[in-house]
Design a protein around this nucleic acid. Structure first.
Length: 280
DNA sequence: AGCATCACCTGGCTGC
DNA sequence: TGCAGCCAGGTGATGC
């Protein structure tokens, strides 16, 4: 569930909490979080290193190390990073804590992930832009690089796939998931099941603008925290953008624009929420 | 190449 | 109340 705004909020937390800190000890407790390399290799590559930067690409967190390698973290559905300050009273480990990183200021970085889809790995293969080779398939990150309509046009034209499928395709745009895809489609009044290739140039321009607007607003609200899988930031605080959701999870409620009820569509195996009255 | 479908996983919800 | 069954979701693999 964490998408670009939530991951950006966590990144900002990491920038102030762990950049400049040295890693004293790494404990991998779950057997599924580290799967591209052995836990022993991850520990070897991290222990003794210092975090030099906290970056993000799409939904991936990138923690630069002082030897040039990068710790890559993906929260997937239910992953949560928590910063626990050093000192006397340290809270007990939450259930499903899969990775523990102890830092030289006594603090701990904890990775909690009930659904175990989240992933950690260290990449040593970094391109000129600082992006690990494993992430070279990612499309443009709209918050880092902007999203001009001219970028979207060739990626939508002649495509039969739905707008929602294309917006959540990380090779097209990096960072959008189910929640923000629905909110973006509502914002520009386009149905999420419209084939990508059916948009005219005016509609693509509206879509590109809506991507930027919705993501920027959500980042300002520190992301969305839903009741299921409550997302929290690095310090355990909730985001507030769920209060501004217009369609996601609001089936049968009146549309904030026209008052007609929001409907839930099935696009592939996933649901999509929209107002069939004012989204065309 | 592009598109659809499935597997992965657990907590929470629904209905019996 | 207890339990079975379903749903949610991102990504990568698989199949058409």
């Amino acid at each position: 569930m964490p998408e670009l705004p939530e991951v950006e909020t966590v990144r900002r937390g990491l920038e102030s909490a762990v950049v400049g800190r040295r890693i004293c000890e790494v404990e991998v407790r779950g057997h599924r979080t580290v799967r591209r390399q052995t836990p022993a290799e991850l520990k070897r590559r991290l222990t003794g290193r210092r975090f030099e930067a906290a970056r993000r690409r799409g939904k991936f967190l990138l923690l630069g190390l002082d030897d040039g390698a990068v710790l890559v973290i993906h929260l997937r559905m239910s992953g949560q990073l928590l910063h626990v300050a050093g000192g006397a009273e340290r809270p007990e480990l939450a259930k499903h804590t899969h990775v523990l990183v102890s830092l030289d200021d006594g603090a701990q970085l904890r990775f909690v992930d009930p659904r175990t889809f989240g992933e950690w790995f260290v990449s040593c293969d970094i391109d000129g832009r600082g992006i690990p080779r494993e992430l070279c398939h990612l499309g443009r990150d709209p918050f880092l690089e902007g999203l001009p309509a001219s970028y979207l046009v060739p990626r939508l034209e002649r495509r039969r796939a739905s707008l929602k499928a294309l917006l959540t395709d990380q090779r097209v745009v990096a960072g959008i998931g189910s929640i923000y895809a629905d909110e973006i489609c509502f914002r520009c009044s386009l149905r999420p099941d419209r084939p990508g290739g059916s948009l005219d140039s005016t509609e693509v321009t509206l879509l590109a603008g809506a991507v930027q607007t919705v993501l920027n607003e959500a980042i300002r609200s520190h992301g969305s925290s839903l009741t299921d899988l409550g997302y929290r930031d690095l310090e355990g605080d909730l985001g507030t953008y769920q209060e501004s959701h217009c369609v996601y999870g609001r089936a049968t409620e009146p549309c904030v624009r026209c008052g007609h009820p929001i409907t839930r569509l099935k696009i592939g195996a996933r649901s999509a929420y929209c107002c069939e009255w004012c989204q065309r």
